[in-house]
Design a binder for these strands. Structure first.
Length: 888
RNA sequence: GGGCAGCUAGCUCAGCGGUUAGAGCAACCGGUUUACAUCCGGUAGGUCGUAGGUUCGAAUCCUAUGCUGCCCACCA
């Protein structure tokens, strides 16, 4: 066994071996129970970032543990075609090469896009492999695969046939940069600084009198078709029905009354621009007003705006319009104003509400989708996201699913060539397309990428093709067990997957939901709590981290700082801690390894089991039980911390140290002692395996625990109850070990406060009232761990610096010139604390109210404590008193 | 405007009605008995955001309130 663990070498070696041996392939034992996870398909345009690291570590932890627990585990791999982002990437690349993407035909552009995808599409999955992810890559699905595309198109066609998908000319969120419609979810509301302009329009019927209007968008004046005021507003009521003079292009527009107008905002009068504002659009519909579109698809003013504005960008037009108002004496004020503006999530520019012809989905199964979560058929961790989810469903609007892009699933709708598209008789909707394609032309648009991802758990398992579903064992692997994702896509993805699945599968909710549990991770932030972003440059390179700390170290570190659903403040010190822990594990195993070869693992005979063995077994069993509950509650962060604490404090620093002494004392017990160490280590490696798969696999083999099964992930994990069967654990013995540990700790602290290292060899004295036997029995261990070259029982410890332990008072023989100042101060503090606590207890026990109201258990607990503290106080005073006789 | 989190040791967090509020990191003191200095032993450090209330008892429950972050929302 090497002195140092070479994680780089071991990790690449084992990953290759796992893949070659088919370790990650789903198993299909029809007798078994399934445990399925679908990977949130990373964008083919994406590069590995910290979020992927956390997300995929968690999934890997779950799936590996599921294998250990005997499930037929299946982790579906795949990638997303990434709609708009891929198109942007390819367009950029083409421009760089001097090709104008707009000059290309659809087919030419798609050819470039497919080529780009084929070259770069698997990069991110390959990067993930460095983390140790155990997905079944042989079943990899890409959202544009032919089979998956059939899933998506079938969904569309079915919805269309049910009348849930319809085409309509409606107000949509238009992104002038990427020139496509967006769903409401793709629009981010951001506070932007701007100006609120107050201006006045002359009232046509009353020349010389004006109505004052507030607006943030004077450039849309040419699109105004009315001025609206609240019908009950006494200031304006009388002018309803009259007309205002729109300044440019000059036109008389009606003054109307509508209750949407807020009387106390601005001037209480609202200009109505139906083509560029959804509220205004609704007003126009109600009042039968014309709609004047004044902004082009790419965000410029069109010819209807008049010669001064036509051709300007929205931003330039605003300035120009303000100037024009000023020139006409119509601008009254321009106040600084901060208001929220819709921003395109992808391109970062303000979206333009725009009237256009789009495809919409009227969401089905909304009530069912709510019920599934409300009734716990789908469980959210942390639970609080339920509210967010339900609130969204309560306020859900139809989904604009068409995108004016080339890259994606083309909408499976054909129009009869040369005929009126609006006439339903001229429509063909099907997955295969019309039988006489020469007479038809297909809709130009593609589907929103999220529309296709919504089918992920269905499509990856072959739905709706019966043969494919049989091949993929749909009935066995569906529903999936756990979805691990971020709460930022709860609407984009999680809710929509639920809706699609419920809409298309028949049966009980338990069978039709896409997953039984959703675990929402937090967002990884930098040490200052800022989001990680390219522009800030605060995001570490994941592959560098893996190279520095090892995949195991990174995984362990990430898990230890990722509490359930809370944001994670990234700190590379944690990765370092993870790596150090792996080193510690290596060294501890190496120590065992150097003691001699593993004998065939055997059940230990009762007479060979020491109290320390019992105690460590109890600790391991407790740890196992804790892990079981941590996995149920998705509390990996404390699970990992407990794993480390047990190993360092209980196993290495206590148990192994005791074992060393025991082996030194009695060479004949050596084999039994080592055998027990193997029992502990073997189980511990298994318990740790989901978190740090590489090093545990490596040690599994190195230590020779692979005699039955080479791959640790396939070895059934014993439960806490089974572990306890190994030895007859007595509570008394556990208590003795506890006392021994506490005594050693107290003596070491005592020595330390005398300025002595814990291993400095000294003569020591003790006085014990009722633990003589225990001390005698553990004499060598006690002496060795405390650094006593001699330990002498005595009646009086007077004149020697002493300390209290559960086993009695211990005094060390120190040189005459030892400084006891520190020790005296320590004892003094101890006495003060005890006095304070005794006073508190006494007050409590003298309180009638406490005695009559508190439960018996609490009262007796308080009495016991008081008694203990009183006797401790007496002894501590004695110890301090004994020091008074000493000079220094 | 509505909602959801968080506020506990210098930092990151645990504890969510019952003894004297814990851990890791950082700090400080001390340590090479051959598994490990990527380590070991020890020490110090907190009126639990603020103010009220309920209770024998509150970090924990209730009511206000202050910051911090996030989500939703058609005030132009």
């Amino acid at each position: 066994m090497e002195k140092e663990y070479n994680f780089r070498e071991a990790e690449s070696r084992w990953y290759e071996c796992w893949e070659d041996s088919g370790c990650f392939l789903r198993s299909e034992n029809p007798e078994g129970k399934s445990y399925t996870i679908v990977i949130p398909p990373p964008n083919v345009t994406g590069v590995l970032h910290m979020g992927h690291l956390l997300n995929n570590t968690l999934q890997d932890v779950l799936i590996r543990r599921a294998r250990q627990d005997g499930y037929c585990a299946f982790w579906q791999a795949g990638t997303d075609h990434a709609g708009i982002s891929l198109q942007v990437v390819v367009e950029k690349k083409l421009r760089k090469e001097g090709v104008d993407p707009n000059a290309l035909s659809r087919e030419e552009f798609l050819e470039h896009a497919y080529r780009w995808r084929d070259m770069h599409g698997n990069i991110i999955l390959n990067q993930l492999k460095h983390l140790g992810v155990s997905c079944d890559f042989s079943k990899k699905v890409h959202t544009l695969d032919a089979a998956y595309a059939r899933t998506v198109l079938t969904g569309f066609v079915e919805f269309f046939r049910k009348g849930l998908i319809y085409r309509g000319r409606r107000m949509v969120n238009w992104c002038p940069k990427s020139q496509t419609a967006l769903s409401d979810e793709e629009v981010l509301m951001q506070m932007r600084k701007g100006k609120l302009y107050r201006m006045r329009y002359e009232i046509v019927e009353d020349p010389g009198s004006f109505i004052e209007i507030s607006t943030t968008r004077p450039e849309t004046i040419p699109g105004d078709v009315a001025v609206a005021i609240h019908p009950d507003d006494p200031r304006y009521r009388h002018i309803i029905g009259k007309h205002a003079r729109r300044p440019f292009p000059e036109m008389e527009i009606p003054i109307i009354g509508d209750a949407v107008v807020l009387r106390d905002f601005g001037t209480g009068a609202l200009k109505i621009t139906p083509a560029h504002d959804s509220v205004d659009f609704a007003v126009a519909q109600r009042h039968g007003l014309a709609i004047i579109d004044v902004i082009t698809a790419d965000g410029h003013m069109n010819e209807r705006t008049g010669p001064e504005l036509c051709g300007l960008t929205r931003e330039d037009a605003r300035e120009k319009a303000v100037q024009m108002l000023q020139e006409r004496g119509l601008l009254l004020a321009a106040e600084d104003y901060e208001h929220s503006v819709g921003i395109s999530e992808r391109s970062g520019v303000p979206i333009e509400p725009r009237l256009s012809e789009q495809w919409f989905l009227r969401y089905p199964c909304i009530e069912l989708a709510k019920e599934a979560v409300r009734n716990g058929i789908i469980q959210f961790f942390p639970r609080r996201w339920e509210k967010t989810y339900l609130h969204w469903l309560d306020n859900i609007q139809d989904w604009c699913i068409s995108r004016q892009l080339l890259w994606g699933h083309r909408i499976p709708v054909w129009y009869r060539r040369g005929c009126e598209r609006l006439n339903p008789a001229n429509l063909h909707v099907s997955v295969e397309g019309p039988a006489d394609p020469e007479n038809w032309e297909q809709d130009e648009d593609v589907l929103d990428t999220w529309f296709s991802s919504a089918f992920w758990p269905l499509g990856t398992l072959g739905w709706p093709d019966q043969d494919a579903m049989a091949r993929h064992h749909f009935d066995f692997f569906y529903p999936t067990a756990t979805l691990v994702t971020g709460p930022d896509i709860i609407f984009f993805w999680v809710a929509r997957m639920i809706i699609m699945s419920l809409a298309f599968l028949k049966g009980d909710l338990e069978q039709t939901v896409p997953f039984r549990t959703v675990y929402f991770t937090g967002i990884i932030r930098d040490a200052q709590g800022r989001k990680m972003s390219k522009s800030l440059g605060n995001s570490p390179e994941p592959l560098d981290l893996i190279d520095t700390y090892g995949a195991d170290g990174v995984r362990f570190g990430l898990l230890s700082i990722a509490p359930e659903g809370q944001d994670v403040l990234f700190d590379s010190a944690r990765m370092e801690q993870g790596r150090n822990f792996c080193t510690k594990l290596w060294n501890a195993c190496r120590f065992r390894f150097l003691q001699g070869k593993l004998e065939k693992a055997q059940a230990p005979a009762p007479e060979h089991i020491s109290v320390e063995d019992e105690a460590i077994l109890q600790g391991l069993s407790d740890l196992t039980e804790y892990q079981e509950s941590a996995f149920r509650k998705y509390e990996f962060h404390s699970a990992v911390q407990r794993m480390e604490k047990f190993f360092r404090d209980d196993y290495c620093d206590w148990y192994v140290e005791v074992c060393k002494i025991r082996m030194r004392l009695d060479e004949s017990k050596r084999a039994h002692i080592l055998n027990f160490q193997d029992i502990i280590l073997r189980h511990y490696l298994q318990l740790l395996h989901p978190f740090t798969p590489f090093i545990t696999q490596e040690l599994w083999c190195t230590m020779g625990y692979d005699d039955q099964e080479k791959f640790i992930q396939n070895v059934p994990l014993q439960r806490a109850e089974q572990l306890k069967q190994i030895a007859n654990i007595s509570e008394d013995n556990i208590a003795i070990v506890m006392e021994l540990r506490e005594s050693v700790a107290a003596i070491r602290a005592h020595k330390s406060s005398l300025g002595l290292a814990s291993q400095t060899q000294l003569r020591a004295y003790y006085h014990s009232e009722n633990r003589e036997n225990a001390i005698k029995k553990h004499f060598p261990i006690l002496c060795s761990l405390c650094g006593f070259e001699e330990l002498i029982a005595t009646k009086s410890l007077r004149g020697r610096p002493a300390t209290l332990t559960p086993w009695g008072t211990f005094a060390v023989d120190v040189p005459n010139n030892t400084d006891h100042g520190q020790e005296r101060a320590r004892l003094q503090r101890e006495i003060e604390t005890l006095e304070r606590n005794i006073a508190t207890s006494e007050a409590k026990l003298n309180d009638e109210n406490f005695l009559s109201n508190a439960p018996e258990k609490v009262i007796s607990g308080a009495k016991i404590l008081l008694g203990e503290n009183r006797s401790k106080l007496i002894k501590t005073r004695e110890v301090l008193e004994s020091l008074r006789g000493i000079q220094k």
